[in-house]
Nucleic acid binder design. Structure first.
Lengths: 164, 164
DNA sequence: GCCAATTGCTTGAAGGTTAAAGAAATTGCA
DNA sequence: TGCAATTTCTTTAACCTTCAAGCAATTGGC
């Protein structure tokens, strides 16, 4: 943004200020909520957000998934998952089993304890989130879902084009 | 979500599924974009996102700011900023000066080199972001800004209520 | 002036994160 | 079959991050 001689706002030929402001707001929102969830999880259940996220992925399936699946779904690196799983196995929340047909592959699943604890946490978590968004009307939520869906698609298109 | 005997969707008394889905979508969007920005910064300028963010805060002011200001603005811990600043001073991008009136306080600012490098990166960064959101119309962007603003307010209200 | 409380920053321990390199196992093709 | 390419996972180094404890300096009430 520049100002002309009469001090009125003038747009540059290809100004991208609005997109940048949108990104910053999106980031602020997410950081704010993530921080809130993180501290609640820590305070109420003494668990970290990454561990909760990992268990959430596993809770969705009955019979476990591989480390690669986890890293894709969580959008984090392979090595990252290795460490997280290690600590969760250690604490008795997870169970690992080497594939019969491919000895590189490990199937990871929640133990009984792990699933029970996760379910308890998830129920609380859902309430926190509901409260965080309590000022939004059902229509606001629908609209936000729609626009974020569009944004996600756009970002994926952009990322794909770059990596191509 | 449960299904009744005729297999129609029925909402539970206090179902918060839509809020949860909204949060997951918000998180996915942010993670996606953040990952893209991170890898571009790394690839094109060999810089990390936290360092870029810190320099972005400093670029907004002419005469520097304190570590506490930085940590509030960046929404990260004090100790985190200490380390980041340390490395950026080391690499010649930042400059630290102890306050005359309060010897606990350090004013941090960009060096000439730091500002020049940041400006170059910021210009590219703005283009990446514009491309990432390129599928959204101006109206979409305005609407998203508005709704995220509302969400941010709601989250702040919620966080404040909890900490009170 | 004194001293307790507060403020600004640093340190240390524990953990999360990535990219890159590498080990182990499998697959596919000649 | 033989072997190169691929896939799955682990390891390592460097960095980011938080929380809690602690140090140094300042402030405020007496």
């Amino acid at each position: 943004m520049i100002l002309d001689s009469e001090t009125k706002a003038v747009e540059l030929p290809d100004d991208h200020g609005t997109e940048l402001r949108l990104w910053l707001r999106l980031l602020t929102c997410t950081t704010l909520i993530e921080g809130e969830v993180r501290s609640q999880l820590r305070e109420k259940f003494d668990v970290t957000l990454p561990r909760f996220d990992l268990m959430a992925q596993l809770d969705k399936v009955a019979d476990g998934m591989t480390l690669s699946d986890l890293s894709k779904r969580m959008m984090v690196s392979n090595g990252n998952v290795t460490g997280l799983v290690e600590r969760l196995v250690e604490s008795g929340h997870l169970d690992r089993r080497t594939s019969e047909t491919d000895r590189r592959v490990q199937f990871i699943r929640l133990t009984k304890l792990g699933r029970a604890e996760f379910r308890k946490m998830a129920a609380e978590h859902e309430k926190w989130i509901a409260d965080i968004f309590a000022d939004l009307s059902p229509k606001d939520i629908r609209e936000l879902m729609r626009l974020l869906g569009k944004a996600k698609g756009s970002a994926q298109r952009s990322a794909k084009a770059r990596s191509a």
